[in-house]
């Protein structure tokens, strides 16, 4: 295994922790928020699309970054993984904000 391959693998594993953390938050929301809305007596307002998109986006962005990074230099792969992680974080915060607006 070449040094570049090892570097790419290490980068992919390190970034996977960040993506995993965002995914964990999204899964927590998917499990807990419907319960909370049911307890508040407003189960019909549960933003299912947002919750499902929140779970789907981090792995999609991670896989996209890995796919686009194939046959590229390690630096390019790191850039792609960083962009994907930042985008995943921005969309996660956006999801929380949209859910709050939908409750009004």
């Amino acid at each position: 295994m070449t040094r570049a391959r090892v570097g790419a693998l290490v980068a992919a594993l390190l970034f996977a922790v960040g993506y995993g953390w965002i995914l964990f938050g999204a899964i927590s929301n998917l499990v807990a928020l419907p319960e909370l809305y049911r307890a508040l007596g407003i189960p019909e307002t549960t933003p299912w699309a947002l919750l499902v998109a929140g779970v789907a986006l981090p792995p999609v962005l991670y896989a996209g970054a890995l796919l686009l990074g194939r046959r590229r230099a390690t630096v390019d792969r790191v850039i792609l993984l960083a962009v994907g992680l930042a985008a995943a974080s921005a969309t996660a915060i956006s999801g929380v904000a949209i859910a709050a607006v939908l409750l009004r």
Partner: peptide
């Protein structure tokens, strides 16, 4: 499209 700052919506 993906990076619109939705928290500014309110």
């Amino acid at each position: 499209g993906l990076l619109l700052p939705w928290p500014l919506l309110p």
